[in-house]
Amino acid sequence: MTGIYQTAVVFGVLALLALVLRYFAGNDRRAVPDLDGTDFGLLSEVALVPTEEAANVLVRKLKTNGVRATRSRNAPYRIMVFPQDVANAHLVLKT
């Protein structure tokens, strides 16, 4: 009889733990992942270039002028910056 009682207590504790975890961590409402590669989150596009080398040159130019920048992984390459840096990035890229 003790074995059945202990087994029931173990399953009860596991069920309670599962409910607590489900309540606090089980409701994932994040957006669907970007599968087509067009959503860059907080970043804004400031340039679009056809080659990887051109993208790297522009990113280096922006970074040397104090603008945080990155590029997309696939051609055509998008040069992206944070929204507060868009105006500065346009100024740097014009020169």
Rank of each mutant, 00 (worst) to 15 (best):
M1P: 01
T2Y: 00
G3W: 02
G3Y: 07
G3C: 02
I4T: 08
Q6I: 12
T7A: 13
A8Q: 12
F11M: 09
G12H: 03
V13N: 06
L14S: 08
A15K: 08
L17Q: 08
L19E: 09
V20S: 04
L21V: 08
Y23R: 14
F24H: 10
A25F: 15
G26F: 01
G26P: 02
N27I: 09
R29E: 13
R30I: 02
V32R: 10
P33R: 09
D34M: 05
L35K: 12
D36F: 03
G37A: 04
T38L: 14
F40N: 09
G41E: 11
G41S: 10
L43T: 00
E45F: 00
V46R: 04
A47P: 09
A47W: 09
A47F: 09
L48G: 02
L48R: 14
V49H: 06
V49K: 06
P50A: 14
A54P: 00
A55G: 15
N56I: 08
K61F: 06
K63Y: 00
K63L: 07
T64N: 14
T64S: 12
T64D: 14
N65E: 15
N65T: 07
G66C: 11
G66Q: 14
V67H: 08
V67M: 07
A69Y: 00
A69H: 01
T70E: 03
T70N: 09
S72R: 03
R73K: 09
N74F: 06
N74A: 12
A75G: 01
I79C: 06
F82D: 15
P83S: 10
Q84D: 15
D85L: 05
V86E: 05
V86G: 01
V92S: 07
V92Q: 09
L93S: 06
L93Q: 10
K94G: 03
K94D: 02
